[in-house]
Amino acid sequence: MSAALTVQGLTKTYKNGKKALSGVDLSVPEGSFFALLGPNGAGKSSLINILADTVKPSSGQVSFLGHDLFSERRWCKQRLGVVPQEIAFDPFFAPRDILKIMSGMFGVKPDMVWIDELLERLELSEHANKNARQLSGGMRRRLLVAQALVHKPKVVILDEPTAGVDVELRKRLWGFMRELNANGTTILLTTHYLEEAEELCDHVAIINQGKLLTSQSMKGLLNTVGSSALVLEYAEDIADESLSKLEAFSPRIDANKIFLCLKKDTSGQNNFNAAYQAAIQVLGEAQSVSVQNEDLEDVFLRLTNEHKS
């Protein structure tokens, strides 16, 4: 599969000295539904804003559908749609006009059939001729999605498109994105709803503190990096000091529970016994013991915790 997007050594240091990206390498396969995950402040939005041309990169290279993003901006922009994280709207116009203007600015004569379809699919038809100031927060966010799609881009980037959107609407929005993806559009999204990302996306990358931790297919991540966890539950909350003694098992504490990562050795046996013995030695007998398979959320939390500086 060829790449829709290849990022190499991208760095960004803001004028105030904040380092947002410290050398990110990332490849997004063409036609994929790609999740870019990371905790708040990991650098996701900086990366996206550089791609969208609203922030200048400090160094690095980006290839977009085989073209150099920085030297062939016009070509790339015509094929890229970005939904920014922060709500923005033109207070002078109504959604239908905003979409016509957006299409025009991309050099595309407004396709009214497509605009009406977008309004319909994003449930804005009723509000199409109201001034954008009268729209609710959720409607404004959907309008942003429509604006990003109006010129029929090949690659769509959504930076937390579902923040503040209710469950029902979120499902329908994802359904629409799935359809676009099935028709060949590459979709890159960031979200804090990890369950949704696991269900929707076929590829995933996790970044933390401006660095890429992992990037692979969703299945691959869950099968190779994802493992099972030993969960021991105690009567009282567990003190953080015990973490250092159990470092070998990438421990994570959640109040009175401790999660220890079970890794498979070459013969396929996992280290259940070793982990269990170590935990009992450090923390004493547990109230209950169980083994869980990690889902995306567990993998995400473990990876981002392991790399805390």
Binding site: A52, D53, R74, K77, I87, A88, F89, M102, M105, G107
Partner: peptide
Amino acid sequence: MVGKLMNMQIFLMMAPLT
């Protein structure tokens, strides 16, 4: 000014306009 305050200038920057 309004573009800046409403965060609207991003649409100009994202559009393929020199």
